[in-house]
């Protein structure tokens, strides 16, 4: 189990979602991924993407226009 990071600051949706999808593919079930983003669209899109693929959304937070989302990868 590892904790990975993904920086999508400055990118606009759906790019952060695509990067998340590609990064998660490299991770194993149980791993945690933390995504940092600036496009508020991710607050909608990444949770939606998690529901579609069955990954677990752990938390979302927003400070100074910077958004952090943590998710746990689930088995496909």
């Amino acid at each position: 189990m590892s904790e990975a990071q993904l920086d999508t600051r400055g990118m606009l949706c759906p790019i952060p979602v695509i990067r998340t999808q590609d990064r998660v593919r490299e991770l194993a079930a149980g791993d945690v991924l933390e995504i940092v983003a600036t496009d508020p669209g991710v607050l909608h899109d990444i949770p939606s993407w998690c529901r579609v693929h069955g990954h677990e959304l752990l938390e979302t937070s927003e400070t100074n226009n910077e958004i952090r989302i943590r998710l746990r990868v689930c088995a496909p």
Binding site: L12, C13, P14, G41, D45, S48, W49
Partner: peptide, 24 residues
């Protein structure tokens, strides 16, 4: 996405990715 996220007036509105919405 894009332009919705760019313009300040649109930032306040919840927006969605329609393809993901359809999948859901």
């Amino acid at each position: 996405g894009h332009t919705h996220a760019i313009r300040a007036k649109d930032r306040a509105k919840p927006k969605r990715n329609n393809a993901l919405w359809v999948a859901e």
